[in-house]
Design a protein around this nucleic acid. Structure first.
Lengths: 191, 191, 191, 191
DNA sequence: CCTTAATCGAGACGGTACGTCGTGTCTTTAT
DNA sequence: ATAAAGACACGACGTACCGTCTCGATTAAGG
């Protein structure tokens, strides 16, 4: 009888693989996710995985990207600097929370170079947020160094690597106690 | 000749084990350090390791602690806030560099909770530095929130987790472009 | 307080050790009996065992001997050849049963040479049984070769190595269908 | 050249494994044969062994069977009872000698139930030898009990378990002093 | 429409490391 | 001096995954 309920191929198969990888990630966590486990869950062979991704980390990154890739697109633009930054940090944490701390740390440990781009998403988003604020006259962009600009991103990233949970108040502290006072202080100095 | 026919025990043996672990760490890195490798290098059995440390991470932490434990003791106290903070960050990086980025990341990934204390060394050192600066009248400690106080520590830690190398200029940026302007801005506001 | 309920020594201690060994034998069988297990049960150190017996087999033999040593002494002498032989075989099996098949096989496997004496107990007992029968005129001992004399012993030993249980009927078969017909046949030939 | 870069599989690999096991048996004996040793000699992993045989004993049995399986086939049929039985016992010992005493004892100790069949090879061979002798009129099979029929097998097996060497004379004693006198005595009784 | 090449599902393979158990020796502490 | 306790060097256990490789079955595409 039947036996094979249709053999999957190409994109359809790839979907299943990434879905299986994601499910494993959820169930056993990154540390105990294995290629064999993913293959078994997707009821296929390991070769099918290795044909697409050279190792565990690459597979997991692909699985993560598929799952959260669509979230991060837009840059907040509410017309208010504070609100924009807070929203951005919120979104950053939403992604990190979805992915899970152990996965982030595992990938960080395993692939040495997660790609500068990967880390600079929040950084460049901040840049455009600040540029718009400068256009609105909220601050003087020329007085801010790159490090000042990406300060909220760096602090947020730090929090997300150290703690599993990043509370509401942490975000407002970063913005209200650190970032805005600094930016305003620097702007105020010239006046 | 003696030397090897003598069966080592207790503290003497433990020294050898940690030394072997440290040597492995240097040679093959954290990811490829194995209990078997360490045992072999110390020319003993795995049981001797497992009797003392339940897993790779615990062993490595012990090896690291033995190696860098003595470095971190004193808190800089030069009479100048800026110098003190810069020295502190330098020392922090000296430790991280000695340990190696892959080890730090590996431990971070493997033990979830590296202990709040472990992370708070720089934080509490900063606190005493700032207290002394306040006593000298360089700033008003009451206007600084805990997050402001540990800001250099957080940023430094962030850098040390992201990049293998933390250049001189990164440290001065953190201090001169971020921390001091913020602290002075906050103090200035009241005057 | 107390702590140590009197430290045992010499013969008293040895008793405890052999008792512990025997208990282990009963509980886990020969294959899974370990020096550590025996030492732990006797709540002493392994050295105490090794000081007395060089290995597991020697210890077990001692434990077995202590337990069954007293059984095997007397040679049956009822005045009837058939009854004597049957009683002898019964006693032989009583010992084997007490010791257990796995222990016998284990010792056989482990010490290669269990000592010819060990095997010859039944053989020499048979010899004296037959001598007495010859004196009574039941048979002519001169017509029997050594192998004929120890035939019941060999067959019984064979059974006891092959099967855990040796039934009543097996013993009577050996005696009534094999041994006695042979002996009488040989004796009858001359008449 | 070539040779090793080819990855062996299935039957071909199994051959190598059993050959390696047999070689180990020859070199170090049963007691010191290890799964690791066999795997190393066959230059493969332990898993490959465990995939086929659950333990040492099963592996060794397979190795032994492969080596001696072809020997034992034919039942002697020379037309003379005495010659047939002697030949059978010789063949039995040839197998035991090939296998080695420590292996036989080791297996006996380790697997409790070596299979009744395994022991009954000689027994059933004897049966057919005697049947043919009866057909020739050399004896009356109806007067022989099963135990009488397998008597030479039992005695031979006994010898082979007790002594490493079974001399020529032992075999002739079994046949000429025990078995034939018994059989002829029993047959003669009726005449 | 049927061959042909690619890929799938499955799992064996050679290999490394795991964490545990037991051996027989050695050392320490306390009778 | 020896008991009790347990550490030590060593070897093997049986398991888990790694990344590669083979195998037959099944598609999809091209002649």
């Amino acid at each position: 009888m039947a036996g094979s309920p249709v053999r999957r191929r190409g994109a359809e198969l790839e979907e299943s693989l990434l879905e299986a990888a994601w499910a494993e990630l959820r169930e056993v966590g990154y540390q105990r996710l294995t290629m064999e486990g993913v293959a078994a869950r997707a009821s296929t062979g390991k070769q099918v995985l290795y044909r697409r991704w050279p190792n565990r980390a690459a597979l997991v990154i692909a699985a993560v990207r598929r799952r959260v890739g669509s979230v991060e697109t837009s840059v907040p633009d509410t017309g208010d600097l504070r609100t924009d930054v807070i929203m951005l940090l919120h979104r950053g944490f939403a992604v990190r929370r979805e992915v899970g701390l152990d996965t982030v740390r595992g990938l960080l440990a395993e692939i040495a170079d997660l790609g500068p781009d990967r880390f600079e998403i929040m950084g460049s988003a901040l840049e455009s947020i600040l540029r718009k604020a400068a256009e609105r006259g909220e601050l003087d962009l020329n007085r801010l160094t790159p490090r000042m600009i990406r300060l909220p991103a760096d602090l947020m990233r730090h929090e997300m690597l150290i703690d599993d949970e990043v509370s509401e108040s942490v975000i407002t502290e970063i913005v209200d106690d650190i970032f805005l006072p600094l930016v305003r202080g620097v702007s105020a100095l010239s006046e």
